[in-house]
Computed example of a mutant assay.
Amino acid sequence: MSEPMRVVVVNQSGGLYGIERMLLALLPALRTRGVDVTFLALCREEDEGGALGRLLREQGIPVHFVPITRFVGLGPLRRVVATLRACDPHVVHVHGYKAATAVGLARLLWRRPVLATVHSESASSKDMRAAMLAETTFCKSFERVIAVSTGVLRDLQQRGVARDRLAIIQNGIVDRFAVVSADPRGERDPARIVAVGRLVAVKRFAAAIHSVAALVRQGHPCTLQIVGDGPLRPELERLADELGVSAHVQFVGFVDEVTPFLAGASIFAMPSASEGAPMALLEAMAAGCAIVASRVGGIPDIIRHEEDALLIDPTDETDLTRALERLLLDVSLRERFATSARRRFLEEFEAQRMSARYVDAYSTVAAGDA
């Protein structure tokens, strides 16, 4: 292709969570590779979900806002079509069920090749069956569907997406921890554990609080920083109080940048019951943390048990406590896992590697070879 590849990336955001952090890494990296990339946000600029678009615009990426609420109405749909026509992309790249639905409907009026990235398994969205059905219907017609893990790929196959339309591209992030590579331990609190994510049941922050309480009772003084916010925060605060560990559990709340918290902790915990390809895990790898994470979803694709981390069974109530205790007591093990995890991040999950894989996928789709 003699002219630059033109790509419009479409997403409806509710805040700066996993998908948004992936896009904050991907779009600037695409631009450095010569891709003419534009972002279409399916929300209002002034809303919380508009933060992603605002941040991308600050980096010089063109951004358009077309608000879409619960349903994709005819008016917003026409605006989506008009925006896509004006951008005239070679490929439209959608993230999330609302973007897949809006662009899928838009193709009835204006057709361009579409590549969709699916970030999680349908089992993690049981309360959104209608939305998942719509996403599945349109993904079956898109030229290429990218899964962020083998688990998501298997789920898409079970949902009826043809295998020859599917590929895996694992998420990546920008390396903000270059200094860590010289000294992976840095100035860290050896007894600090950090956990990052939205405070919802699937993340199992209650299990982390129970583990800290057990460790303190066993004579292992440690602290847990929970970075994130969500509907379960009052319940989790009560739990820490009931277990007598309020002084050992810090609720940081939502932050735009988790880097300082990862850089100050020795251990990162992700005891989730379900995950796709979690960005917080990649950030912990980049930061040089020793990691304990559940053996679910795409996590085993990203990090290896007893090589880069300790992987636990989220259905075993004591597995998390035992893993945390091992890392708290064994400095050399923490350092070995931290160094290995960072090396693996640099080899497989840095943003430029991810963007190179997407450029190849765009070229294939635009050429009609998908």
Results as ranks from 00 to 15, higher is better:
V103I: 13
H93W: 01
L77D: 02
A82Y: 06
V92S: 02
T101I: 04
H90S: 12
R79G: 08
P76R: 08
T83W: 03
V94W: 01
A86M: 10
A102D: 00
A102N: 07
H95V: 01
A86W: 04
G75T: 13
A102Q: 10
V103M: 07
L84H: 06
K98D: 04
A100Q: 13
L108R: 14
R78G: 13
V80N: 07
G73I: 09
G104V: 03
G73Q: 15
V92D: 01
D88T: 11
H93I: 03
L105P: 06
Y97V: 10
H93C: 10
G96I: 09
D88L: 09
V92A: 02
V94T: 15
V94K: 09
L105A: 11
D88G: 10
R107F: 02
H93V: 00
T101L: 14
L77M: 06
L77Q: 06
A99H: 09
A99Y: 06
V94L: 04
V91S: 05
P89R: 08
G75Y: 13
L84S: 11
A100H: 14
Y97N: 07
L105S: 11
T101N: 05
D88V: 09
A102W: 06
A106Y: 04
H93A: 07
L74K: 14
A106L: 09
G75W: 15
V80A: 05
V94D: 00
A106T: 05
R79M: 08
V92W: 00
A99I: 08
L74V: 15
V91H: 03
L108T: 12
R78C: 13
L77W: 09
